[in-house]
Measured scan of single mutants.
Amino acid sequence: TEVDLHLGDITIKLKDVSEEIVKRAKELFKNGWSAEFVKKWIEEAVK
């Protein structure tokens, strides 16, 4: 499945990412993480 994760003005296309990771990524962004950091976190999380 593909998900578009909207973080501010940046959209990250996610492939084969669990709902849990998407939820967590949104929380991290809301908590002040930059979109770049969230993207890196996701990449690490799906390895």
Rank of each mutant, 00 (worst) to 15 (best):
E36F: 02
W41M: 05
V22I: 13
V17S: 03
D4G: 06
E19Q: 11
E2Q: 09
L28Q: 02
E27F: 04
G32E: 02
I12L: 10
E2T: 15
L28E: 01
L28I: 04
H6W: 07
R24M: 13
D9Q: 08
F37G: 12
K47L: 12
W33L: 14
N31H: 12
R24K: 15
D9V: 10
E43D: 10
T1R: 13
E20A: 13
W33Q: 10
L5K: 02
K15T: 14
H6L: 13
K39F: 13
D9W: 02
R24A: 14
E20P: 04
N31L: 12
L5Y: 02
V17N: 01
G8V: 04
K40R: 11
F37L: 15
G32R: 01
N31M: 12
I12E: 04
I42H: 00
K13L: 11
A25T: 01
K23S: 12
D4H: 15
V17M: 05
G8D: 06
T11S: 10
V17T: 05
E27H: 06
I10F: 10
H6P: 08
R24V: 11
D16E: 10
N31I: 07
L5A: 03
E44D: 14
I21P: 00
E43N: 05
E20Q: 09
H6C: 08
E36D: 14
T1P: 11
K47N: 12
A35L: 08
V46Q: 12
E36I: 05
T11Y: 04
K23L: 15
I42R: 00
S18V: 06
S34A: 10
A25W: 01
G8M: 04
A25D: 00
I12A: 03
K47E: 09
E36H: 04
E20N: 10
E19G: 09
A25I: 04
I10L: 12
W33A: 14
D9E: 13
K13S: 11
D4L: 13
T1D: 13
L14W: 04
V46R: 07
V46A: 08
S34F: 06
R24I: 11
L28W: 04
K39L: 15
V22N: 02
D4Q: 14
A45S: 08
K47M: 12
F29G: 01
E20F: 06
S34H: 06
L7E: 02
A35K: 05
L5H: 03
A25L: 05
S18T: 08
V17L: 07
G32W: 01
